[in-house]
Design a protein around this nucleic acid. Structure first.
Length: 380
DNA sequence: ATGTGC
């Protein structure tokens, strides 16, 4: 267990075995961020990789202040995990994929009442980004149908493992972006002291974006369920990009999760790339990783360098099917390369680091069936 | 990541 818990300094813990590949720049960013004023404790996850100034795949505990720029633009980004009513025995991959049409534009009139209900239920007043509610967005966001491939702990599985599953990864779209942009104009990257009016302003907007992102994932899931003519229920929904109140050793402060899944809210899914397994795991109560876990396999290659690395070797046709026979729907060629399985670490090695660190127990291994990115991409 | 450019 000690083998995958690296104590870098008295402030910084890295959950990764010595053989897990972590880019030097990411460690540099981790150290840099840990040195910011008010930063008390930092935990890097085995999916740690470089971001824009701040690393992705880490949790940061501060006291007296927060760093909105560290949370970043995609406030509330996370994973919604659903069980559909469709028995796996009835699933035909091509037929399922063919039903995934008209899932990217605004939801439109038939959904207006559900959208209004959802906004009321979650206390969302902002209406400027209503057109984006129910849309996945770009980058590493996706909606993926999955199947249980291997059940490690049948008793801990939260639903019926013989049904098709749906994992939704998305966030607050333009809303989070607008909130950060507005904040940066006035305050830049500086610490935001907890006793200032600007803190209250930011946090109220941040919290609304977190709720907006949750509603977005719910609407995406319902939209995909409607497309495949199935019912479904949410098994859990978790944010991996946010700042929230947290206590460490009895000391109150703030926990920034920057691509770090909470370990204190029940079961979580750690998704691999579209050509890899994902893992349903049961977190164990443990503060050494700041009650946080990896939020995915983590990038091995930077976005943007993937196309040049892969385009000589693979054509579009090679990338829209995976080794599992699962189908990939992604009309944006750049995105098709940027999110290729080769660009990500092996998810099992990342999850194994968490197991070795005593942070999680395996519940099930999941495999992709259909991964939806976008139908209407024009770039590339 | 992004109402994703001039």
């Amino acid at each position: 267990m000690g083998n995958s818990v690296q104590i870098l300094t008295d402030k910084i813990t890295l959950i990764a075995s010595p053989t897990t590949w972590v880019e030097g720049l990411a460690i540099q960013q981790l150290r840099h961020t840990a040195a910011l004023a008010g930063m008390v404790k930092v935990a890097g996850m085995p999916d740690l990789h470089p971001g824009r100034g701040y690393p992705i795949g880490a949790a940061f505990f501060s006291q007296g202040c927060i760093y909105p720029a560290l949370v970043g633009n995609d406030i509330g980004c996370g994973m919604g995990f659903w069980q559909t009513s469709l028995p796996l025995a009835k699933v035909k991959i091509d037929k399922l994929a063919r039903r995934l049409v008209d899932l990217e534009g605004p939801l439109g009139a038939p959904w207006a009442e559900l959208v209004a209900q959802g906004k009321a239920r979650l206390g969302i007043d902002n209406a400027h980004f209503d057109q984006a509610l129910g849309t996945i967005g770009g980058g590493n966001h996706f909606a993926e149908f999955q199947a249980v491939d291997c059940l490690h702990d049948a008793g801990a599985f939260p639903g019926d493992p013989s049904r098709l599953l749906l994992l939704v990864h998305s966030g607050s779209r333009g809303l989070g972006q607008a909130i950060l942009a507005r904040h940066l104009v006035e305050h830049g990257h500086e610490a935001l002291a907890a006793d200032t009016p600007a803190f209250g302003t930011y946090l109220a907007q941040h919290d609304e974006a977190v709720r907006w992102a949750e509603l977005n994932r719910e609407l995406i899931a319902r939209r995909f369920l409607a497309a495949i003519r199935a019912e479904g229920q949410c098994l859990f929904d978790l944010n991996h990009n946010l700042v929230s109140p947290y206590s460490l050793a009895g000391q109150a402060g703030w926990l920034h999760r920057k691509g770090a899944t909470p370990a204190d809210q029940g079961l979580v899914v750690i998704p691999g790339s579209r050509g890899d397994y994902s893992y349903l795991v049961q977190p164990k109560a443990d503060a050494k990783a700041l009650h946080s876990l990896a939020h995915g396999a983590g990038r091995k290659w930077q976005r943007g360098e993937c196309k040049s690395r892969l385009s000589h070797k693979y054509r579009r046709e090679d990338l829209v099917r995976t080794r599992f026979g699962s189908q990939v729907i992604c009309a944006d060629k750049t995105l098709l390369f940027d999110e290729a399985p080769q660009a990500y670490k092996d998810c099992h090695s990342v999850v194994d680091d968490l197991v070795q660190a005593g942070l999680v127990q395996l519940v099930a291994r999941l495999k992709p069936v259909v991964t939806f990115k976008t139908q209407g991409g024009c770039a590339g």
